[in-house]
Write a protein that binds this DNA or RNA. Structure first.
Length: 877
RNA sequence: AGGCGCGUAGCUCAGCGGGAGAGCAUCGCCCUGACACGGCGAGGGUCAGCGGUUCAAAUCCGCUCGCGCCUACCA
């Protein structure tokens, strides 16, 4: 192949389609439970089947892919299980709305037909996010793609429910739950989002039944008085002590209820008397249980007032509120109002105002499960990275309340409970009972409700592997190595997987939990459709390619910080892909005559880039091992562009283009060019899979796919301290000369000569004469007598005199020297100030003191040399 | 109310106890045989403010100001 056959630009889109297909064909990402290497397993946080790929998914999956590709190359038996979540409420909602658009009420269809419609929808549209994930280039094992409603996973959910039920950890009971009147279902505490709202404290009086007075209560929700069954005061509140135990009469109904004493009441707040509505407020419910109060549910499932509300029956909550207020005012019981900031709970999914309501539901008893989940993190069986997130995890598990898991939906895992129609006996079993175990009755229908989606998500790390069966996958790949997710689902998901995993499998479900950032827009705002600031990852990929997109996400992914998305960065990393491609093209110019088996004579630059490569490899590995993705990305970027391209390629030209170089020298340089590029693409492959695979197949001497090539080890690249020092010297000279050129605005055409006073330095530099000429346009000479006008550079304390007679205005050089001197003098000043401080010399570590001394010596020599030069130059003026 | 995070160059961000960094943007010079999606060079910062610990603080501690987030039963 010759240069003309390599396109002048890298096309990420062609590469993506080519290599995705070939990887799949070669089944590179298929997990093999029979393989003997140590396993590295990840399960994807399953996106909602209704979902569209967003930036959060893109970041999340890029990070997982980097880890999996790194470990795969590094010899692990890797498995990344992908899949989607049935997302009960969200999916039912989407299909319900589609039907409504066709004028169909899903309830009219009936359960079976509706669920059938959802499956149809899923088959047609549900795979969209899976295809979108593939465009990111992720190397998941698609042959193991799972869905939370797959029969295998259904089995796991049923098993989970039954085991916990049999152990007494799942129970059915009447509790106060969060009711979503729009979706007509119960919600867990986590599915309710609280938002601040302006409200009012509205006060009214309850009259004593004996007519001896009244007690004034305040409320933000006057309509709940329809369900009041007590008024509470603090037992030690002198204002009310005489009223405790007396009866109040309800102004609308023929009902009396007591004044109770309870420490829940805050004496200084409001009137110090609290109306108690046990069926519609969590605090009041607790009070109701303590005082054995009647609990009157005043709401229908659709959120309207029920028959308990008498004349208010059928009204919405808001209508009822106005009507109740009017009626109380009419009765002369209104006692004032004031503005009051409050928070209202809304359903995360439907947005409807959630009503606390008394209801019979299934619950998981959390306290016994939370303990071991907590302990597993405390004792290090599972580690959070960054560690600070452990606090979030602990705080939730510490104050945990029982988990309401039943949902009044049709889409999901049906609760495996059956109720005898005759005697009401409850059966919880894997199969439907044929007759009632208690009375023998033949009609034992199943519970109508389904389980909270998260109840199945909690099993994902092992239900995807076939648990409860001891499948080969489960035995080879469980527990998983790391869970990669965002902090917003630590409660929803991470904690629940932890307690479910520990309880059911006896093992923590993952060893590490890497918590990554949220992606926000450039101004730090959360991306949301309503704000219109959403960036579509697919559009970014269309424009810049998956490689540049992924690299940008990684470069931004510093631990513990949100990512503020800046599209311009993608362009920058796209240029990085171009740069790498151009470096490849350069190597290819010299591919002719390259013989990987031929004789090679390595020079200092070759040994230099090899040593530098080793150092870069070590740093990249260290960063990846610590989940410091941005550091790994920065290291590769800096090494590739700043060392390989800017220095090695430039330094290699002298040998490659010279007539004098031996074939063995040239062959060694070519070899180093190709092998270093080979190391770069192996290092970079987890981040830029397509570009690197494309290059791997072009590079001579490579085999197979880079996706399964060995990840570089530092030990492949010999260290060489002497050559590092030697090349650093050359770099310093080149940089110093370039600086003079830049400052003096001297173009490339002006040849410069450096006269070196030190014979030793001259000798050293002479060995690099070719490079100095190539990179700095410099020839060397011995310093014999002073030229009238010259610029000066100081290298390693030695003077380089660059005659500039007739080339530039010496006044310019004096100005330049003044600028440099200003800096050096400041350095000398600072360093000597530190050294003249006796407590620094006494108390700082010896190596620090020695370092400062060394720096001061060097700076002093430099300063003196520059001063002398300046003086001579000023004289010549 | 409690908790967490953030405030570093014009912008987006690293650094988190030993002399202030990157990318982009800006300003010069350069169409040098990989690359102008490039090369070379330069300018630019009381590291939010105040106080403390330390020989040494952007880095540790405290307070203040500003921004963001999470949790919570204020009727």
């Amino acid at each position: 192949m010759t240069e003309t056959e390599l396109p002048s630009r890298y096309d990420p889109h062609t590469a993506a389609s080519t290599w995705s297909a070939k990887w799949e064909e070669a089944e590179l990402f298929k997990g093999d439970p029979e393989r003997n290497d140590p396993a590295f397993t990840i399960v994807i946080p399953p996106p909602n089947v209704t979902g569209q790929l967003h930036m959060g998914h893109a970041l999340n999956n890029t990070l997982q892919d980097v880890l999996v590709r790194y470990k795969r190359m590094d010899g692990f038996n890797t498995l990344w299980i992908p899949g989607t979540d049935h997302a009960g409420i969200a999916t039912q909602w989407v299909v319900k709305r589609n039907l409504e658009a066709q004028g169909i009420d899903y309830r009219d269809l009936g359960r079976e037909a509706f669920v059938e419609k959802i499956w149809e929808w899923k088959a047609e549209k549900g795979g969209r996010i899976v295809e979108q994930l593939k465009r990111l280039g992720v190397s998941a094992d698609w042959s193991r793609e799972r869905f939370t409603l797959d029969p295998m996973l259904q089995k796991a959910v049923t098993e989970h429910f039954i085991r916990l039920y049999e152990e007494g950890l799942i129970y059915r009971g009447q509790r106060l739950i969060n009711w979503d009147p729009a979706d007509r279902t119960a919600l867990s505490d986590l599915e309710v989002i609280h938002e601040d709202a302006k409200g009012e404290m509205w006060s009214f009086a309850y009259e004593l039944a004996d007519g001896s007075g009244e007690i004034v209560v305040s409320t933000t929700r006057p309509e709940t008085m329809l369900g009041d069954t007590a008024v509470a005061v603090h037992p030690e509140d002198p204002r009310y002590q005489h009223l405790v135990g007396k009866l109040l009469k309800h102004p609308f109904f023929d009902r009396e209820f007591p004044v109770i004493a309870d420490t829940m009441v805050e004496v200084g707040f409001g009137t110090g008397a609290v109306k108690i509505t046990p069926a519609h407020d969590p605090n009041d419910f607790a009070a109701g249980e303590r005082h054995k109060l009647p609990m009157i549910n005043i709401l229908n499932v659709d959120g309207t007032i029920n028959a308990e509300g008498g004349p208010f029956e059928g009204m919405t909550v808001l209508d009822a509120r106005a009507a109740v207020k009017a009626r109380i005012e009419a009765l002369g019981l209104f006692r004032g109002r004031e503005d009051h900031a409050m928070s209202i709970g809304r359903s995360q999914r439907s947005g409807a105002v959630v009503e606390p309501m008394l209801s019979t539901q299934w619950f998981v008893s959390m306290k016994p499960l939370a303990g071991p989940a907590r302990a597993a993190v405390e004792n290090g069986a599972t580690n959070f990275i960054p560690k600070q997130w452990e606090n979030t995890y602990f705080s939730w598990l510490t104050d945990i309340r029982d988990w309401c898991i039943s949902r009044q939906l049709w889409w999901g895992h049906r609760i495996p409970a059956y109720y005898c129609e005759a005697c009401g006996h409850v059966h919880v079993s894997r199969e439907a009972p044929e007759v009632c175990a208690s009375c023998g009755h033949a009609v034992v229908p199943q519970d109508e409700d389904v389980l909270d989606t998260w109840f199945s998500s909690a099993l994902w790390p092992f239900s995807t592997m076939g648990w409860p069966d001891k499948t080969p996958d489960f035995q080879a790949f469980y527990p998983t190595s790391v869970l990669v997710t965002a902090f917003d689902i630590i409660f929803f998901w991470v904690a629940r997987m932890m307690f479910a995993g520990i309880h059911l499998t006896g093992m923590v479900p993952f060893k590490d939990v890497y918590i990554h950032a949220l992606i926000r827009d450039k101004d730090g705002q959360k991306m949301s459709k309503t704000k219109g600031n959403v960036v579509d990852p697919l559009e970014v990929i269309d424009q810049w390619g998956a490689d540049a997109f992924r690299f940008t996400l990684l470069a931004f992914a510093a631990q513990g910080r949100d990512v503020l998305w800046d599209e311009k960065r993608v362009e920058g990393y796209h240029r990085f892909t171009t740069k790498i491609w151009q470096a490849l093209r350069f190597s290819f110019l010299h591919e002719y005559g390259y013989d990987a088996q031929g004789e090679m004579e390595f020079g200092p630059y070759d040994r230099w880039i090899q040593a530098r490569t080793g150092a870069a490899v070590a740093r990249v590995r260290e960063a990846l091992d610590g989940y410091r993705f941005n550091e790994a990305a920065a290291e590769i970027y800096q090494f590739t562009w700043g060392e390989y391209c800017d220095w090695y390629i430039e330094l290699s030209k002298n040998t490659l283009y010279s007539q004098d170089s031996s074939e063995a020298r040239k062959n060694a340089v070519k070899h180093t060019l190709f092998t270093t590029m080979g190391a770069i693409v192996r290092l970079l492959h987890p981040m830029m899979p397509y570009l690197t695979e494309e290059i791997w197949h072009i590079l001579p001497g490579t085999e197979g796919f880079v996706a399964v090539a060995p990840f570089p080890k530092a030990s492949e690249f010999p260290e060489d301290a002497a050559v590092l020092e030697e090349v650093a010297l050359v770099q310093d000279v080149i940089t110093a000369i370039r600086n003079i050129r830049g400052e003096m605005e001297l173009g490339r055409k002006v040849e410069l000569t450096a006269l070196v006073a030190s014979p030793a330095l001259l000798e050293q530099l002479s060995r690099h004469a070719g490079s100095l000429a190539d990179l700095a346009g410099l020839t060397l000479g011995a310093l014999e007598g002073r030229p009238a006008g010259a610029a000066t550079a100081v290298i390693r304390g030695e003077e380089l005199v660059i005659p500039l007679d007739g080339v530039v205005d010496f006044a310019e050089e004096v100005k330049r020297l003044d600028k440099v001197l200003l800096k050096v003098e400041k350095d000398v000043q600072q360093l000597s100030r530190r050294l003249s401080n006796p407590s620094f010399v006494d108390r700082a570590p010896d190596d620090v003191v020695a370092e400062v001394k060394g720096k001061l010596d060097a700076a002093t020599v430099r300063m003196e040399t520059l001063r002398a030069s300046r003086a001579r130059l000023a004289e010549a003026l």
